[in-house]
Amino acid sequence: MLDSFARFLKVLNSETEPGQISLALAFAMIAGFTPLLSLHNLLIILMVLVLRVNLSAFIVGLTVFTGLAYLLDPLFHQAGYSVLNNESLKELWTSMYNTSIWRLERFNNTIVMGSLLLSLLAFIPFVLTVNYLIVRYRTSLLRWVEKLRIVKLIKGSKFYGVYKSLSGLTGA
């Protein structure tokens, strides 16, 4: 995990395309918020592997969002419950319920529906926001951060050793 986090920091501080990082984190958000063994997560894995998104960012993001999901479960349940019991959508849900692939997806579960819906809604705003934050971080915050006493202390720590070794390996 320490390696992944170090890799993530390295990527963050490198010249890697911000979109690759933000997209990886957005995919991680879907996979982390929703139950891992869901059918749609197979598609997420496929996209993470095929699209050139940052894998370290995805792994770190998956860990963080899975932890967050435990806290947000009641919210997901409420959202899923409301949507699934919405009368105007009942016909759509009934039609999907009678289709095997959707039943396998377990769309009728309140947690699956709530978490998937909220993470999909947050997907694009999340990508744009993270993109913006990465750019801002690299242009102004990075230099200021490196001057901080706490950062200097970290640079003397084991973690920084790992980080440096990775940098050395990759030549970054």
Partner: peptide, 17 residues
């Protein structure tokens, strides 16, 4: 009851053909 949904949720049933 909704209190039983933690991490599991409820499977909402719809009419089946």
């Amino acid at each position: 009851t909704p209190q039983q949904v933690r991490h599991k949720g409820i499977d909402v049933r719809f009419a089946e053909d």
